[in-house]
């Protein structure tokens, strides 16, 4: 299967690979997995007191499209507010990376990772 140039670029030069300390109160961690292919994705966001995402890191075990999708979202969410980040849709990711239909679930994984991270942040700051 042919990957688009953008997928290959993100796959060969993934942005923001790594991890933050998940116990740091400013760090939100989202873990999601895709049963269909066994891909696992960890997305972490560093969120400041104003509710703006200052930095993002990811670690993904999966195919090129899954890695590209997570790499792309770490670039996209930086500088966004929590509300803005929550609006990100998998279709935008799929479109940007020109993902074929069989790889749409990779973009869903990335969208759900953001949501899971924001959920984690809410939980951390609820009490």
């Amino acid at each position: 299967m042919a990957y688009s140039d953008k997928v290959i670029d993100h796959y060969e030069n993934p942005r923001n690979v790594g991890a933050f300390d998940k116990n740091d109160p400013s760090i939100a961690t989202g873990m999601v997995g895709a049963p269909a292919c066994g891909d696992v994705m960890k997305l972490q966001l560093k969120i400041n007191d104003a509710g703006v995402i200052e930095d993002a890191k990811f670690k993904t075990y999966g195919c090129g499209s899954a890695i590209a999708s997570s790499s792309l979202v770490t670039e996209w969410v930086k500088g966004k507010s929590i509300e803005e980040a929550a609006q990100l849709k998998n279709t935008q990711i799929a479109e940007e990376l020109a993902l074929p239909p069989v790889k749409i679930h990779c973009s869903i994984l990335a969208e759900d990772a953001i949501k899971a991270a924001l959920e984690d942040y809410k939980k951390k700051h609820a009490g």
Binding site: M31, V32, V40, K42, I104
Partner: peptide, 12 residues
């Protein structure tokens, strides 16, 4: 299904 699994302990 395209559902994702969100069980942090299992995924970790």
């Amino acid at each position: 299904e395209q559902k994702t699994l969100q069980d942090p302990e299992f995924l970790m």
